[in-house]
Amino acid sequence: MYEIRIHSRGGQGGVTAAKLLALAAFRDGKHATACPFYGAERRGAPVVSFVRIDDEPIKVYSQIHEPDLVIVLDTSIMDVVDVLDGLKADGTVLLNSAHPVAGCNGTCRHVDLTGIALAQNLVVAGSPILNTPVLGALAKVGIVTLPSALQAIREMFSDERNVKAAEAAYEELKI
């Protein structure tokens, strides 16, 4: 079982990113679950979402305490939340950042999802949309295939700019 924890702020699309990722994994023929952890929901508060991917049906409902992959959609959260908590020794971190981030180890990868969203003018209520470009980055990391990632985006969103943003993130992320 591959376990993913997504850190974001309320309103940044972390919950939708988890759903999209589960859908993409499902289109790859895997079993997948996405579960947001809801606190007192409010825009801007740090929130966590979980995704599990496996070849077998998934019966676990509890939170992910030892993730294989941590995704951080807003690196300012790293000042207040230990995003690396419980990360497996061979785990991976994917950061939304134009630059490497201090304090993150060699397993860290970064891609400027915010810049990609802004370049596509993917903005809702003043916030760049991060949940569709991150799918492209995850396809590059090898969590899902790119065709399934793009299919999942098309199933949930009609605006083709979301697909373009995902493709851009796939191209830009250095592996």
């Binding site: 499902f26 079993h31 997948a32 679950t33 579960c35 952890f37 809801y38 998934i58 409902y61």
Partner: peptide
């Protein structure tokens, strides 16, 4: 059905 644990989880 369990609040959040099932109401808000995404499965097949």
């Amino acid at each position: 059905l369990d609040g959040f644990t099932l109401s808000h989880i995404t499965q097949s």
